[in-house]
Nucleic acid binder design. Structure first.
Lengths: 261, 261
DNA sequence: CCTTGTGAAAGGGTTCACAGCA
DNA sequence: TGCTGTGAACCCTTTCACAAGG
């Protein structure tokens, strides 16, 4: 059948487990904040708290990068920021294209965290001719016809898809054919890509559904009090709570999406 | 400070592993598409392909829900749609509030997949007085002052935060105090919440950084082996030169986000 | 003392492979 | 015959607990 690949070649390269890689950005953010406050060193305990994980996990994660800490003291903030940035490949600048400039695409284009950390929006692309030339976040929107040339001219290897579900696969195919090897997909569809291409997805409705699942459980076993009904009020129910972690996968098509491309 | 829970008595929920719960929405989407095409039954193999997972995993997942399939035949589409919807708590309507109506908030408000399955946007809330009353996606934007009353009047238990990072924790606290027990956070911050409250986060820059990590690896070892994909030129991994951005600037847990709340 | 770094134990999740049944 | 449902193996991740070392 259709490829359906969404895998990664096994990231065998040199250790570092996926779960750890997924947390490095979190550590980096916390460290950057400390750095701005000119904090020289942090303990695994403090940093872990700031990043929302537990210290054992953090130390284990860092152990995969090397021994960057000092026993009895902690980690040097600046040094760690550098090491993690390097590990994540953020010491270089990655040009990115965003396809589908609707509300979502515009929001992404305006997103500050973007430009600030290793990424640069090389171009905004939309299929609507009426959008062409219109400035969004300081950049003129380019028409889809130019997609291929934009990618090769700028050496873009990362693409963001913010089109409606119906256009996603088509856009994806063109991006890949033009040389993009990493895709961040906001459209609620399972993208089929050849081996060697990484796809990560962000799906609003999936997240909401997962929350609804847990919410339902809470309502179902409300302690004492009577009246509950879905969404009555009642603060915390049973700590049947949570696990907010990240689960990745590829959704499939249906749900109307967010914007025109 | 401190991230609320760090420990959980183990997902006692009611059997169903977290990983499975995270995939149910995928199956549901694929099934809904089949349902619309009036396909009566589907095999684990077909459905798995449509959902982007492998059949063994899918069958194992379904086994936690019960034995809804027929050996030698497959699964009844309509029946499964119902069972999964029920399991996810989508047979009831969940009122949701979106706080922070900038580009992102507006995109979320316009998101069709929302209303279509179990969720209903009860209100759009923003801190900017100028926004008050302005219609977005057919709903008038309400001012933050009304947050508490909106939540209790509508029995809202799920809230979406699409504000800048700086306002997120504060908004979160108010939501929780007002009775919200599930939060979907789009702001790049670690939210601290009391036990019993679920938080899931969607973070653009984290996803991009993870992609960059893998992209960097690809660039590093570009194996001769042609035909590694449809991606014509392996010119992938072509980080533009560039040192980086200016020293300071404020990329961090305080990244200028997407919109005002 | 203090905190890191890490073997080893414990838990989940994924995959295998086949028994069981329509 | 064909496909589901599932025990068991396997593998990845998290947690524990302590030795190592500033």
């Amino acid at each position: 059948m259709a490829t359906g690949r969404t895998h990664r070649p096994a990231t065998r390269s040199r250790g570092i487990p996926e779960a750890t890689v997924a947390r490095l950005p979190l550590y980096l953010r916390a460290l950057t904040a400390l750095s701005e406050r000119s904090v020289p060193t942090v303990s695994s305990e403090e940093l872990a708290t700031a990043a929302g994980v537990n210290s054992a996990k953090l130390r284990k994660d860092f152990s995969y990068l090397g021994s960057y800490g000092t026993r009895g003291v902690g980690y040097d903030v600046e040094y760690l920021v550098y090491q993690i940035s390097r590990e994540l490949g953020l010491t270089q600048d990655w040009p990115v294209v965003i396809v589908g400039i609707g509300n979502l695409g515009a929001a992404l284009a305006n997103y500050g965290g973007f430009a600030s950390r290793g990424f640069r929006v090389a171009a905004l692309i939309d299929a609507d001719p009426a959008m062409a030339g219109k400035p969004v976040a300081g950049l003129p929107v380019r028409h889809t016809d130019e997609l291929e040339s934009i990618i090769s001219d700028n050496g873009v290897s990362i693409g963001v898809i913010a089109t409606p579900a119906g256009a996603a696969q088509q856009v994806c195919d063109r991006l890949v054919a033009a040389g993009v090897t990493s895709i961040l997909n906001f459209a609620p569809t399972v993208l089929a890509v050849p081996d060697g291409v990484d796809v990560r997805k962000v799906d609003l409705s999936i997240e909401l559904q997962i929350l609804a699942f847990h919410e339902q459980r809470k309502a179902g076993e409300e302690p004492g009090q009577g009246a509950r009904t879905a969404a009555s009020r009642s603060g915390s129910a049973r700590p049947a709570a949570a696990a907010a972690r990240d689960g990745r996968k590829g959704p499939d098509g249906d749900v109307p999406a967010v914007m025109p491309a």
